[in-house]
Design a protein around this nucleic acid. Structure first.
Lengths: 238, 238
DNA sequence: ACCTGAACACCGTTCAAGT
DNA sequence: ACCTGAACACCGTTCAAGT
């Protein structure tokens, strides 16, 4: 347990490196991952960093900014590593897996559409649409549909992150399915009831992928030069 | 200004009818619509109902329950009126318009997937898929894709509800677009930058509808008896 | 039974005071 | 300049005390 006096070990408090924005963000991610969204407070963060709550404000402007930075950090990592040759579908599934692994990320992404993390996803998805053969004048629509799909699924996942960790994933699904089933029975919701039964068996990653394939299949129908009928604004006819 | 002694007008405090769950939910919706999500607190709600904050807990268990009930009330209304003969596409657009009119609804719907409001949407969407010609074994996937699309768009809308009311919608869009454009320039995000330019011109209702059409077009490709290639799990090939 | 409103245990954020 | 931690202005929720 001897203290070696290496490099700049002269300052008494030098054991902990000076506070920095990136260090704070890193610590925030650790708390979010380990203990969930509600556990991240400026007080808990300050305690982990062995400092006062006010000190954090010298490096990040607000909790919103902190959460945005945390989300951007994670998304940037997968976008950077996935970029080389992955196609849209692969990228979408990687995004799903990221949100699955860090469940607080779901609600954070849904919180503000123009935050850096969302922009990175939009860009990464959009860049691959030309390669996928989506005509230029439909790329924005397809990109927004894919991103909505991510954000929608993200919200679902974020919600299931709120239950205590003791309840396993399949246990949770079982509970939700039971809840759905009972409510559906009482309220006469046959479709929901049938879907709840399936939900208990299949996993939602598969369902997410199916949704991606639906959107891409829809996009593929656009590559034909001229579809016979434009979508009419009046859907009243049978 | 004479007081007529009608019916049960004997009690001094009878002017305001007794507190009830539905009355509380109605008042909550009024506050949410008029002043936004952050303005709804048990204190502000109690003040509007001329009672104490604690009294509300005799009728609703928590703020979560209150928000779920408020969302369910609005969704139930459009599902009930839209039900007769509207197709999926129309229903989706009505859901979009509802979320557009009550922006707090977006974040509330994303909050918990098994809340009543979401169940009602799933059911209403699901019921119409058979009519739309979606094969039975794909209905859950299509329904979940459509609901993810709603929830994704809902999140976007909810986020734009956080800005002060003074800023008009187009003004906000302009600001967001500017922000997107500047960040995109700095960070080299060409697709986002191009999309931001279009975002300033076109409205997002149209983009939402385009997404719905994409999913439905994708679903239409499933109605063929047997597609030549099943989606392969390995997308690594070019 | 229903209501009241002070009290409790928290938040995010600010700011005088220290180093 | 950076940090500290008490203080401020809130929350949701509880609960003794009233009617």
């Amino acid at each position: 347990m001897r203290e070696t006096e290496s490099e700049g070990e002269r300052h008494p408090g030098r054991r902990r490196e000076a506070l920095s924005a990136s260090g704070i963000v890193r610590a925030a991610i650790e708390i979010l991952d380990a203990e969930g969204e509600d556990a991240l407070t400026f007080r808990s963060l300050a305690k982990r960093l062995s400092t006062g709550a006010g000190a954090i404000y010298h490096h990040v402007a607000s909790k919103d900014e902190l959460l945005e930075a945390a989300a951007a950090e994670l998304v940037a990592a997968i976008v950077a590593t996935a970029t080389p040759d992955a196609d849209v579908r692969t990228l979408m599934l990687e995004a799903f897996d990221l949100i699955d692994a860090h469940r607080w990320l779901g609600s954070q992404l849904a919180r503000a559409p123009w935050q850096a993390a969302v922009l990175l996803v939009v860009e990464a998805v959009g860049e691959r649409l030309a390669v996928a053969g989506v005509p230029e004048d439909h790329q924005f629509d397809v990109a927004s549909a894919l991103v909505h799909h991510i954000l929608g699924a993200a919200g679902q996942h974020a919600a299931s992150a709120r239950v205590p960790l003791a309840v396993g994933r399949s246990g949770l699904l079982k509970t939700v399915a039971d809840d759905w089933t009972s409510r559906a029975r009482r309220d006469q919701l046959p479709f929901v009831r049938a879907m709840a039964r399936q939900l208990a068996d299949h996993d939602d990653r598969r369902q997410f992928a199916a949704g991606v394939d639906l959107i891409l299949a829809g996009a593929a129908t656009l590559t034909r030069p001229a579809p016979p009928h434009a979508p009419t604004p009046r859907p009243t006819g049978s």
